[in-house]
Design a binder for these strands. Structure first.
Lengths: 238, 238
DNA sequence: GTATTTACTGACTCAGAGTCAATTTTTTAC
DNA sequence: GTAAAAAATTGACTCTGAGTCAGTAAATAC
């Protein structure tokens, strides 16, 4: 029915509005600074109306995190299409991840936050399921590239499973993003600065050919920046 | 003065009691389930008294996290003394880390929790400084082993800095501990199960000799379990 | 135009962190 | 030993902000 449809669209639009405002509040004031009375004021609806969309404050935060995670899926899908060796395609994931952290620096703390039990347990089931699905999707896109490498013979006979390789890469990324927050390590340099090199080393270690000593992955990354994420990097640096 | 000294000791003892009870509450009910009225009841002091020890609820949580982190320093110091190749010594850190996560499973979520801005910003400066110092200490113990490897010629001429190597290992650990919480990945196996292998692969990749294909690090880990963490593993396995 | 359903909200409750003036206990002074 | 002073402790309070709900307004159906 057309009327119900129009209503659904309006409802959906309002939800996006709420998410956008919440994102803004989270970016400027952090989780602590997110206050549902203020959010209600901003979107010009009552707080009770917010509760028609979200089951709790935490549910709002998860919705914002989900919104960011959708960008990630987009970037990783584009990385998957990158034309080149399987290792170059895998490396495009790393560039996409880094790009996200530059474009939306407050997004990463959110991923970590929503997974903490204090937040996660207060979110609605549908939203948790949706977030889980998006996370899995990202993961599976990575697996796909690793499997492709196995099929093409780019992996060695002593290489681990595709799954394990992706666990390793994801861990390196998550770990680095956690560590940049820990300010007392600043004197030891920037973990982010070494992240790309650590990806390379790890992939050398798992026997994904060619290795970083046979191939210029730094140049490959520059190619990804223009060929896969051209507009985004142009805007970022422009 | 003796009286002041006795008082200080009593104060310190009560603080430890509060931390122990808070740890227990956190282990059973999580951060959300930690309620200062209940905690005050448990330790048989008023809530106002708790505020003579801690600046906020978050400060209590940080104190508990610090308590756990002290175990970590102890374990890593013992790992440092392990008699063997530098890579075996480094690997002992990984075994210690794993042991901690088995003995105190709720400790790891705490490390992550206290670093989130929502918690961190509400903690007292002295406790933040203390926690930072302990974290740095752990980090530096790792660096020491990596430097030792460099001095002994166990690293290759193309190996990265000791700092970068430790960033990588810490990231792999932190990442794996984060990922086990993300239940939707269960079908892809247990990231913890691959953690040791990922350490090995990464260290192969950075050129730390001998590599896992020239040396049986699985056996080396068994040796660490008895020689470095004998009592703890004996108790753990019953 | 009226009845009915749906959408929205103002004014509330409630939990729990954090505070403080008053009280009790301990120490010091004589 | 006793009284004054200092330190430690707490019961009862405030205050914030998440979450609720009964009542009102708007949209739709007839």
């Amino acid at each position: 029915m057309a009327i119900a449809d129009r209503k659904r669209r309006a409802f959906e639009a309002r939800e996006q509005l709420i998410i956008a405002e919440a994102d803004d509040l989270l970016a400027t004031n952090g989780y602590l600074g997110l206050n549902l009375d203020e959010l209600a004021d901003r979107v010009e609806y009552s707080k009770a109306t917010l509760y028609h969309h979200f089951s709790s404050k935490e549910d709002v935060v998860l919705a914002v995190a989900t919104h960011h995670a959708q960008h990630r899926v987009d970037y990783f899908m584009r990385a998957c299409l990158h034309d080149g060796l399987t290792r170059e395609r895998m490396l495009a994931f790393g560039v996409g991840d880094r790009l996200l952290s530059l474009q939306f620096p407050h997004g990463f703390p959110l991923y970590q936050l929503v997974r903490s039990p204090s937040i996660w347990t207060k979110c609605s089931d549908p939203r948790r399921a949706q977030y889980g699905k998006i996370s899995s999707h990202c993961f599976e896109l990575g697996i796909k590239v690793a499997r492709d490498a196995a099929d093409r013979g780019d992996l060695s006979e002593w290489s681990p499973d595709p799954e394990q390789i992706i666990w390793g890469l994801v861990s390196l990324s998550k770990g680095a993003h956690l560590l940049v927050e820990e300010t007392e390590f600043e004197e030891h340099g920037d973990p982010m600065a070494h992240l790309f090199d650590n990806y390379d080393r790890y992939l050398d270690g798992v026997g994904w050919n060619p290795t970083s000593r046979d191939f210029d992955f730094e140049a490959a990354r520059e190619r990804v920046k223009t060929e896969v994420f051209g507009p985004e990097f142009a805007e970022l640096l422009g």
